[in-house]
Design a protein around this nucleic acid. Structure first.
Length: 609
DNA sequence: ATAGGGTTAG
């Protein structure tokens, strides 16, 4: 409990009553650069000074005020009830001229007087400047000052609301989140506007845990979300594959009387297409039907998302069916539509058809963009038609387009994979010369290429170069390094890299674990492989087909056929469909050694029964 | 004054 006793221009006395104690403390709160030593600061002639500020007679003002009193003028101006805009003008001038750090107390008082006169744009720019200055003011000190100087919840809330937006706008999302959280402790009410801005920034930074926190907290604080709020949260959840939770949010919004719109549906359909797992396109199709049943008309974007999904699901035929349906509904396919289809055809090696489609889009007056070229170049590269890829690359400039980092990465990767490192390095230099900066992916291609050629030294050189350039190793970099060590028969060293990934906040993928398990299995260390499986599942990653293939093979080569068979059964029970590799392992390692399959595909050991 | 789509690297 705190009771205000008195306040001077720069100091504030308050009595602190600590519950359960009989003692009363008198504290003096002084701002950092206030001249608290002088008991009564020289008072100023407010009307006179105000007039000078209004006329912007700064040099005259400077001669009237001694240097040391600049900061004492502000509280007096505020106390006098002068026009807040006038005070702000003086504040900005003294700030610029003297470059003194922001004084929290003064800033908060100024914000409060601006809030009371509804000078919202001025408050926004003041807060923007405050946040941009990067001074290390703690959020709690700001909130504390606001509570000390005002008991108007409304004014305080508006300031805090704008503060959150200012942090988010200036890419200080973590501070925006902290302000959001503390606002709850202080009981300040935030608007849906600032919450949406915060949520949107958190989604962009893939901080989904925080997104979920803010979303739940909004309910708890009775901040009513709008259509944007729900769409942002749904998008965040879809991006990390939490599709069931995304569906729950759709139920939430309906419960709040907000109907999902075309964006909502496109987002959730896209989520299924990208990370839906088994039978994902069927689910995506079902959502499309639900959307139509709810009288939401699919847009060009809806079809684009579906077409791309089918292409990635290696079902180009279905993609073309959607393409036809799209035109039947009178929607015009755009460049993105064609890019998805061209990419789908390229991935199937159907380059002639892909080029034909490009001609078709040209005929429709659609201009290919750099992504169109990237998918085509990639198609040629994957078919080892590097000459044709190079020719396409040379066409880019004639089309008035500029190759981007992806274009270069595709070609560098292709040259590395085809043991043409001179060409790869030439493209690496070319991109730098042309001002396209290599990114982590560029180095991943170069590092992987070096390993492939057995050139450990070069790989290390690129890894070093990458760090020097301030580029951080990502999951794929680690996978490349882990793979190289594993191929070298060094799974223990590779596992150390796995540990390092966690310390760097990187999320190992199935592939990471599977690579390591395979390497342990090859040297017959089944326990180490099983430990890794346990670790992987502890991290929320269920064994996939490759995991089972690796482990089954591991048991087989150690002649533990019964254990291998148990794993095979486990895999079938979990609904994982054995692939060609599984079949080969089973045939060579098991069926040829006395196991026979029954009608369900389960194997039985005839020598034991 | 905020929400949704296409291209690279394991």
């Amino acid at each position: 409990m705190l009771k205000l006793l008195s306040s001077s221009s720069s100091c504030l006395q308050a009595r602190v009553l600590i519950p359960g104690h009989r003692l009363t403390y008198i504290i003096r709160l002084c701002s950092s650069i206030s001249i608290s030593e002088s008991p009564s600061p020289q008072s100023i002639n407010v009307p006179f000074i105000s007039d000078l500020i209004a006329k912007q007679h700064w040099s005259e003002l400077k001669t009237h005020l001694k240097d040391s009193t600049f900061i004492t003028v502000l509280p007096q101006l505020i106390d006098s009830g002068a026009d807040p805009e006038l005070i702000l003008r003086y504040f900005n001038w003294s700030q610029k001229g003297l470059n003194v750090p922001h004084n929290i107390e003064i800033t908060c008082r100024l914000l409060l007087s601006l809030a009371n006169t509804k000078k919202y744009p001025k408050m926004r720019s003041l807060l923007d400047e405050f946040v941009r200055r990067n001074e290390k003011h703690s959020i709690s000190s700001i909130f504390h000052m606001l509570s000390l100087w005002s008991n108007q919840f409304c004014a305080n809330s508006i300031i805090v609301d704008m503060l959150v937006v200012a942090y988010v706008k200036n890419s200080k999302t973590n501070l925006g989140f902290e302000a959001f959280q503390r606002a709850g402790d202080y009981g300040f009410r935030l608007s849906v506007l600032s919450c949406n801005a915060l949520l949107s920034a958190l989604v962009k930074e893939k901080e989904i845990g925080y997104v979920e926190f803010v979303y739940k907290e909004m309910f708890r604080r009775r901040i009513k979300g709008d259509l944007y709020t729900f769409n942002i949260v749904i998008n965040g959840l879809c991006k990390v594959g939490k599709l069931n939770k995304a569906k729950d949010v759709i139920d939430d919004m309906k419960a709040w009387g907000i109907s999902p719109n075309v964006v909502t549906y496109n987002t959730i359909i896209g989520g299924h297409c990208k990370l839906g797992g088994l039978g994902k396109m069927h689910k995506a199709d079902a959502i499309l039907k639900e959307m139509v049943a709810n009288n939401i008309c699919p847009s060009e974007m809806t079809f684009n998302v579906l077409i791309d999904g089918f292409c990635k699901d290696e079902n180009v035929a279905a993609a073309f069916k959607v393409f036809e349906e799209m035109r039947r509904q009178g929607l015009k396919p755009g460049v993105v539509t064609y890019n998805s289809l061209i990419n789908g055809l390229c991935c199937h090696g159907k380059l002639d058809e892909a080029c034909g489609l490009q001609d078709e889009m040209l005929g429709l007056g659609l201009k290919p963009n750099i992504a169109t070229y990237n998918v085509l170049i990639n198609g040629f590269c994957k078919k080892k038609m590097l000459k044709e890829a190079r020719e396409l690359f040379d066409d880019i400039g004639d089309r008035g387009l500029v190759p981007n980092v992806i274009t270069y990465n595709i070609l560098i990767d292709a040259y590395c994979k085809n043991e043409m490192k001179e060409e790869a390095y030439a493209f690496h230099s070319m991109m730098i010369e042309r001002g396209v900066f290599p990114n982590t992916s560029t180095f991943n291609c170069l590092i992987a290429g070096s390993f492939k050629q057995g050139n450990m030294e070069t790989a290390r050189k690129f890894l070093h170069q990458m760090e020097v350039k301030g580029l951080k190793a990502d999951c794929i970099t680690y996978n490349i390094l882990i793979d190289a060590l594993c191929k070298d028969g060094e799974p223990r060293k590779a596992e150390r890299l796995l540990n390092e990934m966690f310390t760097k906040g990187l999320n190992p993928s199935h592939l990471t674990y599977n690579t390591l398990m395979d390497s342990y299995c090859r040297e017959g260390n089944l326990n180490a492989a099983l430990n890794l499986r346990a670790r992987m599942e502890k991290e929320g990653k269920r064994a996939n087909i490759v995991t089972y293939n690796v482990l089954i093979k591991g048991y087989c080569v150690r002649e533990k056929l019964v254990a291998a068979n148990e794993l095979l059964n486990e895999m079938l029970e979990k609904g994982l469909i054995p692939n060609r590799t599984t079949y080969e392992i089973v045939k060579v390692e098991m069926m040829d050694k006395g196991f026979v399959p029954d009608i369900d595909g389960h194997l039985h050991n005839i020598s034991s029964s």
